[in-house]
Computed example of a mutant assay.
Amino acid sequence: MSIETIIADGFSETARMDIHEVVRRLNTHLGPTLVAALSGTRDRRQPIRWAKPDGPAPGADFEKRIRLARRVWVAIADAESDSVARAWFIGGNPRLSEDTPLTAIREDRHREVVAAFTAFLEDTYDG
């Protein structure tokens, strides 16, 4: 499967998911503390509430970050593994000036994040 197909499939699947389910799955893989950090909420317990089917929905900015994180997670975990995806989120990244992808998502540097995970999947970290 091509990188473009993996990215498109992750986008389509994530866009169709209820936000509570998106958060629940990210909480399962990254934990609510990291989900809180990447979303930008100061309350590390907020992702637990967002994950409940009858819980509050995250605001628009939080939701945008969470949906991007889920797309990235799916692409990397499907191509590599869950442990590689987690390491990718929390490790310094040369495509992001050694910031973590988690930080770049929180700072709304979404194009940079997409370019970084695409380069990772294509194994083109040369510049």
Rank of each mutant, 00 (worst) to 15 (best):
V22D: 03
V72F: 12
H110Y: 09
E80Y: 13
L96K: 06
T14Q: 03
R24C: 10
S81R: 00
F62N: 10
A60E: 13
P56I: 14
A85M: 11
A51P: 04
D99R: 10
G127F: 00
W50C: 10
G40Q: 11
A77W: 02
R44I: 08
D123F: 00
G92H: 14
E4F: 00
I7E: 10
R70F: 10
G10W: 09
N93G: 10
M1Q: 12
V114K: 08
R24T: 09
A37R: 00
D9Y: 11
T5W: 01
H110G: 07
S83G: 14
R67A: 10
W50I: 01
H110N: 05
D108E: 06
D126M: 01
R86V: 10
S81V: 11
D61G: 09
V72T: 14
S97D: 00
M1K: 11
I6M: 07
T5Y: 04
N93E: 06
F117L: 06
L30G: 00
D82S: 15
F62T: 13
T118Y: 09
L121A: 09
A57C: 06
A60P: 15
R109C: 01
R67K: 07
F11W: 05
G55D: 11
G127N: 05
W50M: 09
A116W: 01
V84Q: 12
A119L: 08
T124Y: 05
D126H: 02
S83R: 13
P32A: 14
T118M: 09
D43I: 03
E107A: 15
T103S: 14
I105A: 02
E80S: 00
A36W: 04
T14K: 01
Y125Q: 04
S39K: 01
L38G: 14
H29N: 14
H110Q: 06
G55S: 12
A8N: 04
